[in-house]
Structures are given as structure tokens and as C-alpha cells.
Design a binder for these strands. Structure first.
Lengths: 134, 134
DNA sequence: TTGCGTGCAAAGGTTTTGCATGGCA
DNA sequence: TGCCATGCAAAACCTTTGCACGCAA
């Protein structure tokens, strides 16, 4: 049903390579062009859509810039919250009891059923805070 | 330094009127047109920018649609987290001890300094869950 | 051979910018 | 009067769509 193409592999490889941070669609095009494998923007967008739908890639929309994408593998990211560093782009998966309790608290006290898959907490990670101090 | 104009007042009034949910820039234009006060989209965007900068209005960027804006007054919204209902748009201000503890936990255990002003938790509010069941 | 995948060009929609005009203080 | 605010038109920008061709199975 789904074909394997060079472009598909190239896009996924690029996402995996940069999984420490995030990439924009245009970034991927640029990286692939440098690697010698030219892939059209249209194709990149189409592959990204599929990967996001499969849950292999997480999509972030932030103010004032284009959408960014980050490889997360099959880490069941719909089930836990994430912290995203606004400085370096690092994504921290919060597989943590405290947050389970948090969800419960929100539900009980505020009647609100939170959706970890759609929620990202923004801030600055420890590494970047250390760098800022220097 | 800043002038008071009819347009400025009209935009702010419209935001206040719809503060239960959120509005898009085009919504504001439409509402104002119906009220008899035509205001250009450019002006609406410029006023929204200022209001967001002043902290009087909160801006949300969500996937696949235009940015939406919501009046929050001077509720010190940079200091607490928010829950936003994906169904009705209601914004819940979490001035709640549990979340102060949460911030502390994230900082201590994960080294991550969270930024409540930039963070919104998405989900479904109690009212909308009740409606869904019916 | 079949039909999905690709990529160019063009369209689409939102937001921003340039510039002349309008209106507050 | 001085200067910010407005609004039209156009540009900028990211993303999606149409369509013909290419290529995997």
C-alpha cells in the first residue's frame, strides 16, 4: 500500500539525525540538498504529515515561525507530557509519576481532562540555564 | 504617547465581549462590521500585537488555523498556567498550589525552568465532557 | 501494469509592510 | 502643529493543491 522511496527514507533519516532538536520543513530540504539528495518541499510536507499521523514525529506550532518537527520514534508520546526547551529545542519526555498525579488533580479539582499528546510545557532546560549563567 | 482612537476601543471592546472564548483577527473584523464600526484588518492586527505585548490579551497559535486571541485583563497571566478547552475555547486560570509544586518538581528533578506564560495545557473542560456524554 | 509517490507551478490563506491620508492631543 | 494611527494595496510567508510524469511492487 505504501511504497518505499529514496525521498521517504531521506526525510526520515534527516529527522532521526536531528532528533536532539527540531527541524523545519525548509531545514530538511536544505540538509538533504547538502547531502546530495534533492527532495522537493512538497514531498517533505507530505512525508511529514504521514509521520505525524503515525506518531513517529511530533509537530510543534510556535508563534511567529514555521512549524517544526521532531523525531520521537514510537515512544507512546500521546500518553505523557513533554517539556520543550525554548532555547535549544530539546524535548524532554515526562514519564513521571508527578504528572500522572497532576492529571488526576486537574480532573478532580478543575473538572478538566487534559490531553498530554497536545500539550507541551515550554521553558528553559538545565543545560541552557547553565550556559546563560556563564 | 499612545492615542485613543475609535478603532482601538472597538477592538478591545470586542475582545472583552468574547472573553469567554477566543476570537480570530477576522472574527473581530466581522463582529465590528456588524456593529457598524468598520475597522481594517491591518489595524486589528496592529492593535492585537500591542495588547498581547501589554499582557492584556493572550495569543494562541494552533495547528491548521489562524491565530486566536483572548482577553485576560491584568490577571498576571505570566505567573500561572492555563488550561484551554479544545472544544469550547474556555480558558481556565490555574492559580493553584498544585502547580506551584509542579514547577518546583520540574525544576528540581528535571532541571527545567518552566515558563507558565508560554505554556498552555490543552484538553476538554468539565462542561464539555458533560455535554459529550449526553 | 497498476497506482502511489514525486515535483513543479500555481493557488490558498494568514500576516506584515509601504505609503499616503486621517485624526488625536 | 506634530506625530501616531489608519487602511488600502501589495508583498511576504508558509503550506496545500492540481496535474503530469516517474518509479516501486
Amino acid at each position: 500500500m505504501a511504497y518505499n522511496t529514496k525521498q521517504k527514507e531521506a526525510v526520515l533519516a534527516c529527522l532521526k539525525e536531528h532528533s536532539e532538536g527540531h527541524v523545519h520543513a525548509a531545514d530538511i530540504a536544505e540538509h538533504l540538498a547538502k547531502s546530495g539528495s534533492k527532495v522537493g518541499l512538497t514531498t517533505i510536507y507530505r512525508q511529514l504529515d504521514k509521520l505525524v499521523e503515525e506518531g513517529v514525529v511530533k509537530k510543534f506550532v510556535t508563534e511567529g515561525s514555521s512549524a517544526c518537527y521532531q523525531y520521537v520514534g514510537d515512544g507512546h508520546c500521546g500518553e505523557h507530557f513533554h517539556l520543550k526547551c525554548e532555547s535549544c529545542g530539546k524535548l524532554i519526555h515526562l514519564k513521571c509519576r508527578t504528572f500522572d498525579r497532576l492529571s488526576a488533580h486537574i480532573l478532580e479539582e478543575h473538572g478538566f481532562l487534559s490531553d498530554p499528546g497536545r500539550t507541551t510545557l515550554y521553558g528553559i532546560c538545565g543545560d541552557c540555564r547553565a550556559k546563560e549563567v556563564q
